[in-house]
């Protein structure tokens, strides 16, 4: 029983992390129609920035990572996705694939394939007993961090003019421009926010692994993207929920799959994802309203 509760908490932690990344995917997709596969490499790059700034302490390293991630996201927007603004959604997705590939290989070129290890003293480690169950401190921190970030994001999106305009643009981009919302500003803003979110993901992931490799962020983006699409890219709540469900399921599968099937956790998950895509192409959360193709 206690093992089950512990695996549930771990599942929540992984789910929270993937949910956060899926939320980033959904946020960006809502505004600019880019299902950005390259967000995974933004996570990786942020982790390398954390590594580069490790001597400056946790705060310094996070500061550096924030700058790097936001600049990278803005550059991506300006150089690739802004010129492609009118391209079909599938083309944008494939283009983001190529961006991810190019960036990952550039990181490989710069840092080599081996793990660069680093640990921050102030990042929590070890386990803690909560009501009789042993949970890793990192899992708890992940849940707290994601919660805080979610609250901040909701505050931004509902409480500030910028946030409301961003949601307006996400609802109807052309109409938002007709009431004065500057397309470039809101697009750049959305990209920048996904950069900030990626730094949090990078912080947790690199602490889990104890360092960074050029493919650190690949798994996160794959599952966050699947989760976001399954949950419904059109609604932020849907995307985040989808990411959470995918992450939590993956975590539960890897702890509870019988030995004979161990390793097939991803296969099962992807099979479920494909099934859900076919049954509810419009997303889990808001089903049935996807436009039928003529």
């Amino acid at each position: 029983m206690s093992a089950f509760v512990q695996s549930l908490i771990d599942a929540c932690s992984l789910g929270a992390l993937y949910g956060l990344e899926a939320l980033a995917v959904g946020l960006l997709f809502g505004v600019v129609r880019v299902a950005n596969f390259a967000l995974g490499t933004v996570v990786t790059t942020s982790a390398y920035a954390l590594y580069a700034g490790r001597d400056a302490g946790l705060a310094g390293a996070v500061g550096l990572a924030l700058v790097v991630a936001v600049v990278l996201c803005l550059a991506m927007e300006r150089l690739v996705f802004r010129p492609l603004r009118t391209a079909p959604v599938a083309t944008l997705f494939i283009a983001s694939f190529a961006v991810a590939f190019t960036l990952e290989k550039t990181l490989l070129l710069a840092f080599g394939p081996d793990q660069r290890s680093f640990v921050f003293d102030r990042m929590p480690s070890g386990v803690v007993s909560v009501g009789g169950y042993y949970v890793t401190r990192l899992s708890l921190l992940t849940i707290v961090l994601v919660g805080v970030l979610l609250a901040a994001l909701v505050g931004l999106l509902r409480g500030t003019s910028f946030g409301i305009r961003m949601r307006a643009a996400s609802d109807d981009f052309a109409m938002a421009r007709l009431v004065g919302v500057r397309a470039n500003a809101v697009t750049a803003g959305a990209f920048a926010i996904t950069g900030v979110m990626s730094v949090v993901v990078a912080l947790v992931l690199s602490a889990q692994v104890g360092g960074v490799t050029p493919s650190l962020g690949t798994n996160v983006i794959v599952f966050a993207l699947l989760g976001a699409v399954v949950g419904g890219l059109d609604r932020l709540g849907g995307a985040a929920t989808g990411g959470f469900v995918v992450g939590a399921t993956l975590s539960l599968l890897s702890s509870w799959l019988p030995d004979r099937l161990a390793g097939f956790d991803v296969s099962f998950l992807v099979a479920v994802v494909i099934a859900l895509l076919l049954l509810r192409p419009g997303g889990l959360v808001r089903a049935g309203t996807m436009k039928e193709r003529v």
Binding site: R158, S161, I164, R165, R167, A168, D171, D172, M175, A176, L178, V179, G180, V181, R182, R235
Partner: peptide
């Protein structure tokens, strides 16, 4: 525009607040 195109997922108040 035709049919007004209010921001459908925003509240009425937010629709007005979205204007620059």
């Amino acid at each position: 525009p035709e049919r007004g195109r209010p921001f459908s997922r925003l509240t009425v108040e937010e629709n007005l607040r979205a204007v620059v």
